[in-house]
Design a binder for these strands. Structure first.
Length: 562
RNA sequence: CGGGGUGUAGCGCAGCCCGGUCAGCGCGCCUGCUUUGGGAGCAGGAUGUCGGAGGUUCAAAUCCUCUCACCCCGACCA
C-alpha cells in the first residue's frame, strides 16, 4: 500500500475530546473518526486491524467446531417480550416501530434470535450439541458512551452460543469456548485475567469475564497475590477479621448533630468498625430494604444489585416514614417488619452502635443476633486492596480492568421461555441447555493500544498489526533513495508481505513521527546516507533494535523477521 | 438521569470577568522558491453564520434566558 494512495489522516495534536490513551491514539493515527457520542467510523487502517482481530476469532471458533452464522440486526419486539428482556433491557435497547406499527428493535445481543432458530430446527438429542457464532454489529443505547471505542452504542460483537442436552455437555462446550478465548486474547497480544463475575441482565448461573488490566477500564477486579482467586469486585469476597465490642444492654445515647460514621465514632470515642452502617434502599417494586455493613466498610453497588436487582437509595421522605428519623440516625434496631440484609462481617457481633431511629440519638450495646432480624448475610462490602484472600489468606490486589470477553452458563432461561425443546433418549421433551459467549472486537483493538502505546510510540502485536512492514524512503526527491525503496516494496509485495510504503514527499521527521503512531512491527528506513554505505536500516519495533543490512540482503532479512 | 466541564477557521487554543479597531494566534491547507535522517525556511494566499434561538443595549463572541452537542465522574455492559 502506498500512503499517497491511501487514507491515513494523522494528527499532530491530541483532539480535545479524547482522554484515554487508546482514544487519543486512534484519532491521531487516523484509525477512527467520531460522528456522535458512541458511534465511530473505522478508517482503512483501523479496519485492517479489526479484520485481523476478526480473523483470529474466526480461526479459533472454527477450530473448536463452532460455526459461523449471520443474523439480522433488526428484531421483532414480541420475541423480546417472550424472554422478558423487552423490559429488562429497557431504554438500553434502540426500539422503533416499522411502517405497520409493529414494535421492533436493533438487537443488543442475540440469545433470543439464536434460540428461536434452535427452537424451530433442533428436535432431538441427536441434533446436539451445537455451537454457533457470528460477528455482527450490536446496538446498545448506552446511558453514557465514553472512552473512545471502549463503550459505544454500536459495536462488533463476536457472540457464540452453545446448545447441549446435558449439564455435562454444557460444561464441555463452556470449557471449549473458554480455551478458545484464551488463545484469541493471547494471539491478539492481550494478557487477560479470567475472573468470576455477575451475570446481570443475561441471567443464568456461572459466568466468567476476561479482563485486561488497565487504568482506562471501568471495571474493578480483585485478585489474590498468591493463589488463583480472581473476581470482579461485584461478586468479590475477602476474609475479614471480626470485630466485636463489649456485650451489653441496648442503651440510647444522645448524639446531637452527629450524623456520619466519622462524627459518631469521634463523639462516642469508639472505633468506626463498631458502628453499623445502615442504609435504606428502594427496590424496583417499591419495597424498602435495610442494607447493613460495618462502619469502616463501603457498600458495593455491584454486589447490591446482584442481590436486590435494580435499586436506589431511598429518598429522605421514605426514610422518615419508615423509621421516624432522618438519615444519619436510622437502623433496623427496634423496627418491625423491615427486610434486612447484612454483610457477613457483622454476623454475631455484639456491642455495636446503630441509629436509634430518633433524631439526635444512637443506641449502643447492639447485638446483631438479639436486636436485628437479618434475613440474609451476604457479601455487600467493597473489597479493599490488602484484605485477606478468601481462599488462602494472602493479600488481595484491586485493579481497574477492561472487560474484553464474557462467557455464561445460561442453562434453560431462554430455551424455556422460547420453547426450544428437544426429545431425549427416553422420548421426553426437555429444554435445551444453553451457554453464551461474547467478545467485544473493538475492545480488543482499544485494549491492545492501552497496553502497547506509551503516548508516543505504538507497538502492534504482530498478528493484529495493520501492516507487517513499513518502508520509509526519507527523501523521495532523491532518485537513489526512492528507487531503492520502490524496489524493496515490489519485492516484498511479490512475497505477499503486507507492506506500507510511505511515499509522501514529507520530511524525515514527519515520517518518523507518523511511523511511531502506526506502530508497524518492522520499519525499513531508506536514506541516502546509509545507501552510500550500501546498507539499509531495519528497525524491529518490538525491541526498538536496529540493524544495518546490505541492500541486496534486505528483503530476505525482513522476511526472516516476520 | 444526577453532578462537573467545554463549544470561537480543518486541528489545538487566546479573547468573555470589565460590552465598543476582537475576528485573533499556532499548526494544518493552497501557490512559488529553497530545503531533505526525527513534526523545515522565506514570500504570498484562502478559510469563521464565535454551537443554536430569543432577549438586554446605540452597540453582543463578551451580559441575561432557553436550547442543542460533546467530554469527564456515578448507575449499565462486549
Amino acid at each position: 500500500m502506498r500512503i499517497t494512495n491511501y487514507f491515513v489522516p494523522t494528527r499532530k495534536e491530541v483532539p480535545r475530546e479524547a482522554e484515554i490513551p487508546s482514544h487519543q491514539m486512534m484519532l491521531r493515527a487516523g484509525l477512527i473518526r467520531q460522528h456522535v457520542a458512541g458511534a465511530y467510523s473505522i478508517l482503512p487502517m483501523g479496519w485492517r486491524i479489526l479484520k485481523n482481530i476478526m480473523n483470529i476469532v474466526r480461526e479459533e471458533m472454527d477450530a473448536i467446531g463452532c460455526h459461523e452464522f449471520y443474523l439480522p440486526a433488526i428484531s421483532p419486539g414480541d420475541l423480546w417480550q417472550k424472554s422478558g428482556r423487552w423490559k429488562t433491557f429497557g431504554d438500553d435497547m434502540f426500539k422503533f416501530k416499522d411502517r405497520k406499527g409493529r414494535e421492533m428493535c436493533l438487537a443488543p445481543t442475540h440469545e433470543e434470535v439464536f434460540t428461536e432458530i434452535a427452537a424451530n430446527d433442533i428436535r432431538s438429542y441427536r441434533d446436539l450439541p451445537k455451537m454457533w457464532y457470528q460477528i455482527q454489529t450490536k446496538f446498545r443505547d448506552e446511558v453514557r458512551p465514553r472512552s473512545g471505542l471502549l463503550r459505544v452504542r454500536q459495536f462488533f460483537m463476536k457472540d457464540a452460543y452453545s446448545f447441549d442436552a446435558t449439564m455435562e455437555g454444557l460444561d464441555k462446550s463452556y470449557s471449549l469456548q473458554r480455551g478458545a478465548y484464551l488463545r484469541i486474547f493471547g494471539r491478539a497480544g492481550l494478557d487477560v485475567k479470567v475472573v468470576k463475575a455477575s451475570s446481570g441482565a443475561m441471567g443464568g448461573r456461572d459466568c466468567e469475564e476476561f479482563m485486561l488490566l488497565s487504568e482506562s477500564g471501568d471495571d474493578e477486579i480483585v485478585n489474590c497475590s498468591s493463589c488463583s482467586y480472581a473476581s470482579n469486585q461485584e461478586v468479590a469476597d475477602s476474609k475479614i477479621e471480626k470485630v466485636s465490642g463489649e456485650p451489653g444492654e441496648l442503651t440510647k445515647v444522645s448524639t446531637p448533630g452527629m450524623r456520619t460514621i466519622d462524627e459518631v465514632s469521634a463523639f462516642l470515642k469508639i472505633k468506626s468498625s463498631l458502628l453499623v452502617k445502615s442504609l435504606l434502599y428502594k427496590k424496583d417494586d417499591g419495597s424498602l430494604v435495610f442494607v447493613l455493613v460495618r462502619g469502616d466498610h463501603q457498600v458495593d453497588d455491584g454486589k447490591l444489585e446482584a442481590v436486590l436487582g435494580d435499586c436506589m437509595p431511598a429518598d429522605a421522605e421514605d426514610v422518615k416514614k419508615l423509621t421516624g428519623a432522618d438519615i444519619g440516625y436510622i437502623s433496623p434496631v427496634g423496627l418491625k417488619d423491615v427486610t434486612v440484609i447484612a454483610d457477613p462481617s457483622l454476623e454475631g457481633m455484639q456491642g455495636l452502635v446503630a441509629g436509634a431511629n430518633e433524631n439526635e440519638f444512637h443506641v449502643t450495646g447492639v447485638d446483631m443476633a438479639r436486636d436485628i432480624n437479618v434475613e440474609r448475610f451476604t457479601p455487600l462490602r467493597t473489597v479493599e486492596a490488602g484484605e485477606a484472600c478468601i481462599n488462602c489468606g494472602a493479600p488481595l490486589e484491586v485493579s481497574r480492568a477492561i472487560e474484553v470477553g464474557h462467557i455464561f452458563k445460561l442453562g434453560t432461561r431462554y430455551t424455556e421461555a422460547l420453547d426450544a425443546l428437544f426429545l431425549d433418549e427416553n422420548g421426553e421433551n426437555k429444554p435445551i441447555i444453553m451457554g453464551s459467549y461474547g467478545i467485544g472486537v473493538e475492545r480488543i483493538m482499544a485494549g491492545a493500544i492501552e497496553t502497547h502505546f506509551d503516548g508516543t510510540v505504538m507497538k502492534w502485536p504482530k498478528e493484529i498489526a495493520p501492516f507487517s512492514v513499513q518502508i520509509m524512503p526519507l527523501n523521495v526527491s532523491s532518485d537513489t533513495c526512492r528507487e531503492a525503496a520502490e524496489k524493496l516494496y515490489d519485492t516484498l509485495k511479490d512475497k505477499k508481505v503486507e507492506v506500507l510504503l510511505d511515499d509522501r514527499d514529507e520530511r524525515a521527521g514527519v515520517k518518523f513521527k507518523d511511523a511511531d503512531l502506526f506502530g508497524i512491527p518492522v520499519v525499513v528506513v531508506v536514506g541516502d546516507r546509509s545507501l552510500k554505505e550500501g546498507v539499509i536500516e531495519v528497525r524491529n519495533r518490538a525491541d526498538e533494535s536496529t540493524e544495518m543490512v546490505k541492500v541486496e540482503d534486505v528483503a530476505d532479512y525482513v522476511l526472516k523477521l516476520l
